[in-house]
């Protein structure tokens, strides 16, 4: 039987293509154009070639911000992914507890970023904040406005509080999709709890975990609002991450050319890491299926 092909369906993709073009491709092209010019005003710009890229690549403050960002992102992933899986495994599978847990877990996700920053800014203060007050009462010298370590930990804990729920909900959805027959077979085989997790639950959660890790990687690598509201990038530059540094360059100093070059490098880093991660995980999945 000959298969009839009808390519008219491609026209259905056209609206999405137009939206993506307007919202992403055209701005990205503009950034590329800006990155090779010195722009003084709308009609006053000069071609400078790769000068801004060289300047950005030699910038020691940017190297520091990049290292800080990498440390922060990997800390976030190392905490949130295992914690999210762990919490998802302990959630009830039926009854009223399911709805209650879903609502509670969704709450942090519904709060806007700047409000999260404000909540933690107050929560961490030693004079009026519950968290800061209790820690100091217990004899822990905690002050996120003066100590780099405290500021760093507060930003990290804030992110864990805000986003672990997302990983939990994704993992829980993955766990719920496993048919009971798998668990029954494991029970007949006398599989241990660890074996059930390793050979049934983890492989079945793989696709949602890929999404979870990618979302958390990209989000934490581009984090801006929460640390900006909480610490303003301080004390010193202790919590100045890449996006804050970029905003300072583009909006604060109005260095559009270097900021555009920096944006492109930033974009390439995210693109590479996401692609490598996606490829490694999907290849591992295919090997396991074979």
């Amino acid at each position: 039987m000959n298969k009839i092909t009808n390519n008219k369906a491609w026209f259905l993709v056209l609206p999405v293509f137009c939206i993506v073009a307007i919202s992403a491709i055209i701005p990205l092209m503009t950034v590329v154009n800006y990155s090779v010019q010195d722009i003084f005003g709308p009609d006053s710009r000069f071609f400078v070639g790769t000068e801004w890229f060289q300047q950005v690549l030699d910038d020691s403050r940017l190297h520091e911000a990049l290292l800080r960002q990498i440390g922060y992102t990997f800390s976030v992933l190392l905490i949130e992914i295992p914690l999210g899986i762990g919490v998802a495994l302990t959630l009830p599978r039926k009854g009223w507890g399911v709805s209650a847990c879903m609502v509670l877990l969704a709450l942090p996700l519904l709060i806007p970023w700047n409000v999260v920053g404000t909540i933690w800014q107050i929560f961490g203060r030693a004079d009026i904040g519950l968290g800061g007050y209790i820690l100091n009462m217990l004899g822990v010298s905690y002050n996120y406005t003066q100590s780099s370590v405290d500021a760093w930990l507060t930003v990290l804990v804030m992110d864990v509080w805000h986003w672990t729920s997302l990983v939990v909900l994704l993992c829980y959805a993955g766990l719920r999709s496993i048919p009971d027959a798998y668990y029954q077979a494991a029970k007949i085989d006398g599989a241990s709890r660890w074996a059930v997790f390793r050979f049934i639950q983890l492989p079945k959660m793989q696709s949602v975990l890929v999404i979870g890790v990618l979302l958390r990687f990209m989000d934490s690598f581009m984090i801006y609002t929460e640390p900006f509201v909480l610490t303003g990038g301080g004390p010193g530059n202790a919590t100045t991450f890449l996006s804050q540094y970029l905003t300072r360059m583009a909006v604060g100093q109005f260095d559009l050319g270097p900021a555009a070059a920096f944006s492109l490098i930033y974009f390439l880093i995210i693109l590479l890491v996401c692609w490598v991660f996606y490829t490694v995980v999907m290849n591992a999945g295919q090997r396991e299926e074979q």
Binding site: T30, V32, N33, Y34, V36, Q37, I39
Partner: peptide, 12 residues
């Protein structure tokens, strides 16, 4: 407003 240059136009 997109601030085109011959080099970037050629690239795209």
């Amino acid at each position: 407003w997109m601030a085109w240059t011959p080099v970037t136009a050629g690239f795209f």
